[in-house]
């Protein structure tokens, strides 16, 4: 709700401070997109100036490969954030649990299609579990998923020490292959981001999810069910994380229960950097794709600069702080 307007109202003809644009929302998205694209371009340009061989198919392969799993996870996290679910800190568990189920079924000799579908199903079940605790316990999602993240990791440590995808399986072959010159795992990520972006922007389902995230009280007053929306979002986001698990195990021949931890930072950074505010209710998935691409280029650039390895951690931490700072700035500005 806006601040109360003073009794002395301005003259009727006085123009508003900023004239309305054709579409204020999409122009904000456009601004975010251009900003990230510009920063990305800057990073690429600087790297290419120092190392002209940066502009190569090897770089393209490296960046697109790095984007794949992180990008899918970012979609999952993005949906949670947009819907006002704050953050899902248990994404690494959803990722690894699904990957484990998938490779276990493959190892048991089940058809590839069954194993591949089991991944998203596992993720959806995990997400629903989170959702049920959050909705019926009326608890803060960050606290809940922090707890289930720990608990889930503990359970996985009991279930398995390390998991391997059968080296001769079709899924493994898919993970090693390329299409149109780029890694196979890159394409499902791009398709997923585009489809999710369209669904959020142009379907009734997406509208309502955004509304619940933007103003839960208002959404409820319009007859939308908050519990049902929350459950659907956590379930759906979980299914997407499970899909990430399928891609993950196709490229990671061996993984341990805590192998997902490394994705936590980059995924959250990508979401926030993309302007998907932690306060919920808005987000553009095309910007998210750019954001993931930018963050995935950083380790490659670091390699080209020949910086010591610890720098990539410094960069990631610094970027997260920057992203949170930008998010805070956006919120303060829009609150004026």
């Amino acid at each position: 709700m806006t601040a109360p307007v003073t009794a002395a109202d301005p003259a009727p003809s006085r123009p508003r401070r900023r004239p309305p644009r054709a579409d204020a929302r999409s122009s904000a998205g456009l601004r975010d997109a251009l900003t990230i694209a510009a920063v990305w371009l800057l990073l690429g340009t600087v790297t290419a100036l120092v190392r002209p061989d940066f502009l190569s198919t090897q770089t393209l392969l490296a960046v697109t490969f790095t984007m794949a799993v992180a990008g899918v996870l970012a979609v999952s996290q993005g949906l949670v954030v947009i819907s006002g679910g704050l953050l899902d800190l248990s994404l690494p568990v959803a990722l690894i649990l699904s990957a484990w189920v998938t490779v276990s079924l493959l190892g048991a000799g089940l058809p590839t299609i069954v194993a591949v579908l089991a991944g998203p199903l596992t993720g959806a079940a995990w997400g629903l579990l989170n959702g049920l605790i959050i909705v019926y316990g009326k608890l803060n999602p960050i606290i809940v998923t922090l707890a289930t993240g720990f608990g889930g990791l503990a359970i996985m440590l009991v279930l398995f020490k390390s998991a391997q995808i059968p080296s001769g399986s079709e899924l493994r072959a898919f993970g090693l292959g390329r299409t149109l010159g780029l890694p196979n795992v890159f394409w499902p990520m791009v398709i997923l981001i585009v489809l999710t972006g369209l669904a959020v922007a142009y379907t009734r389902w997406g509208r309502r999810m955004v509304a619940v995230g933007g103003n839960a009280v208002a959404a409820k007053a319009r007859g939308l069910s908050l519990p049902r929306t929350r459950l659907a979002v956590f379930g759906g986001a979980g299914a997407i994380a499970g899909f990430a698990g399928v891609l993950f195990c196709s490229v990671n021949p061996s993984f341990t229960p805590n192998a997902g931890a490394g994705f936590q930072l980059i995924v959250i950074a990508a979401v926030i950097l993309a302007g998907i505010s932690l306060s919920g209710g808005k987000g553009n998935f095309l910007v998210l794709l750019l954001s993931v691409g930018f963050l995935s280029t950083i380790p490659v650039s670091i390699a080209f600069f020949g910086l010591p390895p610890a720098w990539s951690l410094v960069f990631q931490g610094g970027l997260l702080i920057l992203a949170v700072g930008i998010d805070g700035y956006r919120m303060r500005r829009s609150a004026r």
Binding site: V63, F65, N252, P299, V300, A303, F304
Partner: peptide, 10 residues
């Protein structure tokens, strides 16, 4: 596996 591709590209 996330960080190594850059090394090969570089």
């Amino acid at each position: 596996l996330q960080n190594a591709p850059g090394v090969f590209a570089a």
